[in-house]
Design a protein around this nucleic acid. Structure first.
Length: 471
RNA sequence: GGCGCCGUCGCCAAGUGGUAAGGCAGAGGUCUGCAAAACCUCCAUCUCCGGUUCAAAUCCGGACGGCGCCUCCA
């Protein structure tokens, strides 16, 4: 059974869906005003692996919602600068996000709502009005605020200490007037030059926190939902406020388990525009790295530890992934025959270790170790000629199953299937080189290999023939 | 000021009471026309100091070092 760390209780807990076999999960998605960076994607990749673990290791159904925040200060400012309507502006960044997500092998969630869709705005307005009826709000200059003093449980998730947090804490300087600095806005009153909607609250636009509460409740059904996930920085105030809104309106707990992914650092520093270390997928690709290697790197550490992104780390990830893919390629050249018990045992041991690792709070680092243990055993067996095509199928299926969760091997294979030059040309050249080798014209053979290497293609001469692969 | 996390081999990273997984890099060897791939062997006592225990990287206390949150942020 899966054990998951719950931020609410600060401990690992056995996890099962509240009702039936379906997990209802919400994860906070991107604000679509720019290209998402690799730190954003660490969170999304980890949530993707959690999703896949729930499906393929635990055998649950998953109903997941991930939102696009397409209205806030940044998107409004961006649209104004670009001189295009807000919707057109955010359309472009949503498209960019989807491309990057696909390149990283992220599965598409069942629901990907946009905050500014009418159904969602209506849900937000209804939620605000429910809070108003329950006495949790006040109005000021056309805006509606949540009064946290009306909810004694406020601060439970973030473990806020009412006394201790005064000194040294930076004061929230908001353009809107609030009774208590920690009160937060639910609905921002209409302002010139800003988009505005009115579904009963009065004209304006939603505050940031309300969209997640409203869309989670609308799309995932009766609270509590099973899992709510996001980056650690969202614990406060975003998730704390989501809880306040949902529970203030419904009177029921909002989410059973809160999962938070630690931050990605770059060369030991927090990513920031002023340091110039905010990288996107395009930046990583421009350095000659595969998306699969980035996904691998993001999975190589446990999701609750800070992960330090470095370019040498990317190099190491490329090599590690190559080891798995090369092993798979060797399996293709194994002779037919019956199964060998030691191979089957190695596969069984790996499956067991892999599952245990993921059930232990999604320990991807340990799960990867199980994969590499299998790779070593299989390679040794291939050298000892004790692997048949029958065994190869068993091994391949195991690694395919592992990759249903990791999502990294298939990604790499797909990338490598698109070499920098036409496949037919590569194969023609390889054949020409084979002919040279037959004539024992090794000078020519080596020259051809060198030329291909310069064009990004590496050759491996094996007993069964020559294999080419992308550098 | 308050709350919290971390410090494991050159690099990355599991392990959280029973005597240090895995990956990358490195050294030697086997195989190979060469190379690659692969295999075999080698390569740490866990920041430091005390304490608890038959037994600690793992628990407790302290020191040093790094980091996060309390503000928009994945």
């Amino acid at each position: 059974m899966l054990r998951l760390y719950n931020t609410l209780t600060r401990r690992e807990e056995p996890f099962a869906p509240a009702q039936g076999n379906t997990i209802r999960m919400y994860a906070c998605g991107p604000t679509v005003y720019a290209r998402a960076h690799i730190g954003n994607f660490r969170t999304f990749v980890c949530v993707d692996v959690l999703r896949r673990t729930l499906k393929h290791v635990c055998g649950h159904e998953v109903r997941q919602a991930v939102n696009y925040t397409d209205v806030d200060d940044k998107t409004i400012a961006g649209a104004q600068q670009a001189g295009v309507p807000l919707r057109a502006f955010t359309d472009g960044w949503i498209q960019a996000f989807r491309e990057d997500a696909a390149a990283l092998g992220l599965e598409t969630p069942e629901e990907t709502p946009r905050a500014t869709d009418d159904a969602n705005l209506r849900a937000m307005s209804d939620l605000v009005l429910a809070l108003e009826r329950n006495g949790h709000t006040y109005r000021r200059d056309g805006s509606i605020y949540f009064r946290i003093s009306t909810l004694p449980a406020y601060g439970t998730l973030a473990r806020l200490d009412r006394e201790g947090m005064q000194d040294g804490a930076r004061v929230d300087v908001d353009e809107y007037t609030k009774d208590d600095p920690r009160d937060f806005v639910l609905w921002k009153g209409e302002r010139p030059g800003e988009p505005s909607w009115d579904f009963g609250t009065g004209p304006g636009r939603p505050g940031w926190h309300i969209e997640c509460s409203a869309m989670a409740l609308r799309l995932l059904g009766e609270p509590p939902i099973d899992i709510h996930a996001g980056g650690v920085d969202l614990i406060f105030p975003h998730h704390e406020n989501e809880i306040a809104q949902s529970e203030g309106a419904t009177g029921k707990p909002f989410a059973r388990v809160w999962v938070h992914v630690e931050h990605l650092f770059v060369e030991h520093e927090k990513m920031s525009k002023s340091l110039g270390n905010v990288y996107t997928l395009a930046d990583v690709a421009a350095r000659g790295h595969r998306r699969s290697a980035l996904r691998y790197l993001l999975l190589s550490a446990h999701y609750r530890t800070q992960l330090n992104f470095t370019w040498t780390g990317m190099d190491q990830a490329e090599e590690a992934l190559r080891r798995i893919v090369d092993c798979l390629a060797r399996l293709d050249e194994v002779p037919p025959g019956d199964a060998h018990v030691p191979v089957l045992e190695a596969v069984a041991a790996a499956r067991q270790a892999f599952q245990s690792a993921l059930e232990d709070d999604v320990n991807t680092a340990a799960a990867l170790a199980a994969v590499f243990d299998l790779v070593r055993d299989v390679n040794a067996a291939i050298d000892a000629r004790t692997v048949s095509a029958t065994d190869a199928g068993v091994v391949r299926r195991a690694i395919e199953d592992f990759d249903r969760v990791l999502g990294v091997v298939g990604l790499r294979q797909a990338e490598d299937a698109r070499p920098p030059m036409p496949v037919e040309e590569i194969e023609r050249i390889v054949q020409a080189r084979q002919a040279a080798r037959q004539r024992r014209d090794f000078a020519a053979a080596d020259r051809i290999r060198r030329e291909l290497a310069e064009r990004g293609i590496l050759l491996e001469d094996n007993p069964g023939g020559t294999r080419w692969k992308k550098k």
